[in-house]
């Protein structure tokens, strides 16, 4: 009955094992590399952005986070122009300011894919305005050669019929990403694999979201 400590002791080994899971790459063989500083954000305002932030923290990657940044805020770089959190607008900055002073342009943006009407409502957004906001961010990233990572960690509950809210968020980000990370349950129909093949985007699939920790560590090595 030493279960607690068995699990605690095995966790680091488990993370190492997950980090060495064979890469399911489509379109290119080499594992992609991304650079700091990095901004995390949501596409669809689901709670999965908390999963992404927890993964970043577990991977030891310092990041800035904003749930609803605009292209203008993204342009402000590290610190997002000094924006402050308020109801319906969350912001967190853990970026190492000794390495990247405020205003340093972001070199990577990580999008957590998943729609929540409750989350969008809390930020005063609709599906349409959220898709427009995300599309503006994607365009800015493309114009400024900012590396885009699309993360789908929510599994089957964050998928739906074609045209549904979750699929709209996937359509808005995944085909334009430089790297796609997906938990197995969210890719049962091979949707992300197909996007990777069609667009030449590397796709990594993991059994569980926790497996993304090792991949994120490698991505920013």
């Amino acid at each position: 009955m030493r279960g607690t400590w068995r699990v605690a002791a095995l966790l680091p080994l488990f993370l190492v094992a997950l980090a060495t899971v064979p890469f399911h790459a489509s379109g290119q063989e080499a594992a992609p590399k991304a650079a700091l500083p990095v901004l995390t954000t949501s596409a669809g305002q689901s709670a999965d952005v908390n999963t992404v932030n927890a993964i970043m923290e577990q991977a030891g990657i310092k990041y800035d986070y904003c749930d609803v940044p605009t292209a203008a805020m993204l342009k402000s770089g590290v610190g997002l122009g000094g924006a402050k959190a308020k109801p319906g607008f969350h912001i967190e900055s853990t970026t190492d300011l000794a390495k990247f002073k405020a205003g340093t342009p972001y070199r990577t943006v990580v999008f957590a894919l998943g729609a929540s009407l409750k989350g969008m409502g809390a930020s005063g957004l609709t599906v349409e305005t959220e898709v427009r906001r995300v599309t503006d961010l994607i365009q800015y990233c493309k114009q400024h050669k900012i590396f885009i990572v699309a993360v789908h960690a929510g599994g089957q509950s964050k998928r739906g019929a074609p045209g549904s809210d979750n699929e709209k968020m996937i359509d808005a980000v995944a085909p334009f990403a430089d790297y796609i990370l997906v938990a197995k349950d969210g890719n049962k129909d091979g949707r992300f694999t197909k996007i990777g093949q069609d667009k030449g985007i590397p796709v990594s699939q993991v059994d569980y979201a926790l497996g993304m920790v090792g991949l994120i560590t490698r991505l920013f090595e």
Partner: peptide, 23 residues
């Protein structure tokens, strides 16, 4: 939230039952 998310991800991956986080 951060502790809950890590706990949820860990039990899901290591103990084989589904668990998620609600805000």
């Amino acid at each position: 939230m951060r502790i809950a998310t890590m706990a949820s991800m860990t039990v899901t991956a290591m103990e084989g039952f589904e668990n998620h986080v609600e805000p």
